[in-house]
């Protein structure tokens, strides 16, 4: 897939950069203030996962369109160790890093669509979509 923009995640500060970009982007697409916060928070979670578990990766943004509605598509790609048990990380309260364990299931609740593919040793790709209401 060809994306309009990508933000590289290497340093901790890149998390803030990515979510600020995502907030501006979603504002341009016409999202309300609450949805802007939802999207920015989801990006923050995704970016932090990349930074914490994979070391480096990128977050890509694009506009998507469907019959009568449009939305934002965000893809987080890394080439880190991958996730062994996807159903486990999608459980509320599961964390290997001492966090709240709200990360991925939280992202799923914040967004409208959520897809995750991961291969051990090769990396993880998480694709989320939110539609303008």
């Amino acid at each position: 897939m060809d994306f309009r923009t990508c933000v590289n995640i290497q340093k901790e500060w890149d998390i803030v950069g990515a979510r600020q970009f995502g907030r501006d982007f979603s504002k341009k697409l016409g999202f309300g203030i609450v949805d802007q916060a939802r999207i920015a928070t989801a990006i923050s979670e995704l970016a932090r996962n990349i930074y914490l578990y994979a070391g480096s990766g990128k977050i890509c943004f694009d506009e998507v369109e469907n019959v009568g509605s449009r939305g934002i598509c965000i893809v987080a790609i890394d080439t880190g160790p991958g996730i062994k048990d996807i159903s486990q990380v999608m459980e509320d309260g599961f964390s290997t890093s001492g966090g709240l364990g709200a990360g991925l299931p939280g992202v799923k609740r914040l967004m409208d669509e959520f897809d995750i593919t991961s291969k051990t040793g090769e990396g993880t790709e998480i694709r989320v979509v939110k539609w303008v209401r």
Binding site: I33, V34, Q36, A37, R38, T41, E45, D92, L100, A102, P105, G106, R109, L110
Partner: peptide, 14 residues
């Protein structure tokens, strides 16, 4: 705490 922040926290399950 702003409304938008409160809503996202609830969505996150926090």
């Amino acid at each position: 705490i702003q409304p938008a922040v409160a809503v996202t926290l609830i969505d996150l399950g926090i």
